[in-house]
Design a protein around this nucleic acid. Structure first.
Length: 122
DNA sequence: TCCTTGACTCAGA
DNA sequence: CTCTGAGCCAAGG
């Protein structure tokens, strides 16, 4: 069956955190890319992973240890993936600006300029 | 056990 | 550029 083996949430999160910790200051990555860099459990259907991996990464960010630079993870549009009125939004934006990342008028980060290419590129 | 909800992404209009 | 719909797992109430 497609989802016979439930993903090990703890393990998945740990892998995500490891990758996020590799993002250099002043750069950002996206949920989707990170999901791609995490090895897919062989028991997991690739199609489901494609549809849910990014959200699981989001879940990992929501539960990350304090040593993980979660603020360097944004959505594929280059925007902070949190409601603007929340505390988290302002915290994330400030942390990123302190690292030198620039937001345009619409609150969008230029991924061409600040996007990180991944573990392999480092 | 059923129902809701979630830090997503991509294609199409 | 903005908005919509589809994709479809898992934890928690």
């Amino acid at each position: 069956m497609k989802y016979s083996s439930p993903p090990d949430r703890q393990f998945f999160y740990a892998q995500v955190w490891d990758i996020v910790r590799m993002i250099p200051p002043g750069y950002v990555s996206t949920y989707g890319k990170i999901a791609n860099w995490v090895p897919i459990a062989k028991t997991l259907d690739p199609q489901s992973y494609r549809a849910w991996g990014a959200r699981w990464v989001g879940g990992a960010m929501a539960n990350c240890p304090s040593d993980v630079p979660w603020q360097r993870v944004v959505n594929s549009q280059g925007k902070i993936s949190l409601p603007e009125e929340t505390k988290g939004f302002s915290v994330q934006r400030k942390l990123l600006e302190d690292e030198g990342i620039v937001f345009n008028e619409r609150g969008v980060i230029d991924l061409k300029r600040f996007g990180w290419d991944g573990p392999a590129e480092s």
